[in-house]
Amino acid sequence: MILSSGFDWSVFTPKVNQMIVDGVWETLYMTLVSTLMGYVLGLPLGIVLAVTGEKGIAPNKAVYGVLDFIVNITRSIPFLILLILVSPITKLIVGKSYGSSATVVPLVIAAAPFIARMVEGSIQEVDKGVIEAAQSMGADNFTIITRVLIVEAKTSLIVGVTIALGTILGYSAMAGIVGGGGLGDIAIRYGYYRYDMEIMVVTIVILVFLVQIMQYIGMALSKLTDKRRIK
């Protein structure tokens, strides 16, 4: 219905264009930094989950139970709420509770447990026989983690990164609540609230494009590094 009214390019004043360009950078900044930090926390967490799990190489009910609980709790909190709940922590870390950098903190807190679960899953997929072989060679757990689990789970882990990027980019659309900006925020505020169809379409097209690029790079990388299949 709104589309039929035609595409009015005149809304793209220099200021609006600048806003969209800024939005691209804000989105990339929030997504990439949060994913990176999310892995800094989530990768070790996921490894510990996989290792201490019932079928891990060093089962530990207490450690697994506590981490599993924390991960579940954090994953259950809607991102919107998290965004607001952690603002005191945000202020402590970033120095202010609004803006793109302030959004990174809740994004990381939301992403880390989610990443941890994916990492846990990737590592659980590693063939038990290969782990047993390493144990039979006298490998210690640290060697098994770094030289067997991560290496063999590589392809799956890279696919996980791709999924994480897309998910975090989606979360970042809510950054506008704390003034984080980004394309998602522009799409919501101008497209949804103000019925600026043109701005919404353009920002969404850019978002789709960004997700596609990430997806493409991720899949290409995972294929390139996958030695399990005959090429």
Binding site: V130, A133, G138, A139, R228
Partner: peptide, 26 residues
């Protein structure tokens, strides 16, 4: 001890039905 056991395991090698090679390594 765990360390001694790991050391001893290098004297006792093992091969498996499904080979159990690292598939991502040459």
């Amino acid at each position: 001890s765990n360390r001694e056991l790991r050391r001893e395991r290098t004297e006792i090698s093992m091969i498996f039905q499904h080979f159990n090679l690292l598939m991502q390594k040459n």
